[in-house]
């Protein structure tokens, strides 16, 4: 499908986080919804301004529960069902002994789902992204703050959005090619 606009979006550059936050808020107020902000440090408030909350904790909880079930299930199945064996008179279902491995598996699965879930939801790895086309963007990992309004935004139009973003008070506004 041919994109509607010749560019991916507009990228405004800011000097510090407070300016970015203000710009994000006013863009939101102006009705823009398909935006992304780029910051050198994590800024929870910016994400919230963009209307975003993550569901990652639930994924991790699910991973942990799965890990616990797999951990205890593995031990129960191997020690009680598949190969019951008398070890020093202890019961087949030696649950006090099984707690440790159950615990470790819980942690392992939860940690793995935290990392993989984060990458998956973030769409990473993604070595190529249009925003990297802007030379100044390399400062996003140093000391500059960026706000991008994507051309996918229903309210986007080439001239209007440009002039709106010029009015946000950033250092510059650049086109992001596809």
């Amino acid at each position: 499908m041919k994109p509607k606009f010749p560019i991916y979006g507009y990228l405004a550059e800011f000097h510090d986080g407070a300016e970015l936050l203000a710009a994000a808020k006013s863009s939101r107020a102006a009705g823009y919804t398909v935006m992304e902000a780029y910051t050198p440090v994590p800024m929870e408030e910016v994400a919230h301004t963009l209307g975003f909350r993550t569901s990652l904790p639930w994924i991790v909880l699910a991973g942990g529960v799965l890990g616990a079930c797999v951990g205890f299930g593995l031990q129960y199945w191997t020690s009680v069902i598949d190969y019951p064996m008398n070890i020093g008179g202890r019961p087949m279902n030696s649950w006090p002994s099984f707690i440790v491995v159950t615990f470790e598996m819980t942690i392992l699965f939860a940690a793995a789902s935290a990392v993989l879930g984060m990458l998956w939801l973030n769409g990473l790895p993604q070595p190529y992204h249009p925003v990297f086309n802007v030379p100044a963007f390399e400062l996003a990992s140093r000391n500059r703050f960026f706000l991008m309004i994507l051309s996918r935004d229903p309210q986007f139009d080439m001239a209007g959005t440009k002039s709106f973003m010029d009015g946000l008070g950033g250092l510059s506004v650049k086109e992001v090619p596809h």
């Binding site: 020093g88 006090p96 002994s97 707690i99 440790v100």
Partner: peptide
């Protein structure tokens, strides 16, 4: 409590 229990339980 688990530490105390499992050590005593296992050593028996």
């Amino acid at each position: 409590n688990y530490s105390q229990f499992v050590i005593i339980w296992s050593a028996n």
